[in-house]
């Protein structure tokens, strides 16, 4: 238990610290790197909770795909930090207000926890003791009870793909493309002209 507790505090502390660094780092590339650090440590937290599938998905999808995509975007956008910081004071009141509301909400939740003694029952997620692994359990649900939703989500992704192609793909008639068939079937006589050059007279 002690090792688990220590691991939890380590992962949690690093996650929070990395989260702070994401918004306070001066260099946006560093921000994305801290984001990746936060993802890795959250994955560690998931492992501690026994959700190993979620942990792996977090690493594979968020670190492997999303964060790398962020990195590309950040590097390509050429963000000027001075400009970004210019509006800071302007948005400060709004940001402070939202922050205040969030803190108050947290306070209410914590307060109700302390005041009402039976409230903690509501927070227990229905954990059923299972002998299967996460992946197996998820697969069992996803492909049986939720097969309809799974297929429907697939159709939505198909529409998203068609939509992206329809709205952005343009034909470029002037673009030069490689056509292997044309290349292979090309005959020397189509393009080459053999000339006899008599010696000594030059070309």
């Amino acid at each position: 238990m002690i090792i688990q507790g220590l691991a939890f505090y380590m992962f949690a502390a690093i996650t929070v610290a990395a989260g702070v660094m994401v918004i306070s780092a001066r260099n946006p590339v560093h921000s994305v790197l801290f984001l990746i650090l936060a993802f890795f440590n959250s994955a560690g937290l998931f492992v501690l909770m026994g959700a190993e599938f979620l942990a792996m998905i977090l690493v594979v999808v968020y670190v492997g795909a999303v964060a790398v995509l962020f990195m590309f975007v950040v590097m390509m956008l050429d963000i000027s930090l001075a400009e970004m910081r210019a509006g800071f004071l302007q948005y400060l009141p709004l940001g402070a207000m939202i922050g205040f509301v969030l803190v108050m909400e947290l306070g209410i939740i914590g307060g109700s926890w302390v005041i009402a003694d039976n409230v903690d029952k509501n927070f227990v997620a229905p954990i059923v003791a299972m002998k299967t692994t996460n992946t197996e359990a998820l697969g069992n649900m996803l492909y049986t009870h939720y097969v309809y939703y799974f297929q429907a989500a697939g159709m939505i992704l198909l529409v998203a793909m068609i939509g992206a192609i329809v709205l952005t793909h343009r034909k470029r008639p002037d673009a030069r493309k490689q056509n292997i068939g044309d290349q292979v079937s090309r005959h020397p006589s189509d393009t080459l002209e053999i000339k006899k050059v008599s010696s000594g007279s030059g070309v």
């Binding site: 429907a152 989500a153 939505i156 529409v159 939509g163 329809v166 709205l167």
Partner: peptide, 13 residues
């Protein structure tokens, strides 16, 4: 929700 989103997404496009 899934039906509604499938419909809406196609219509946005």
């Amino acid at each position: 929700y899934l039906g509604l989103e499938l419909q809406s997404l196609s219509l946005y496009v």
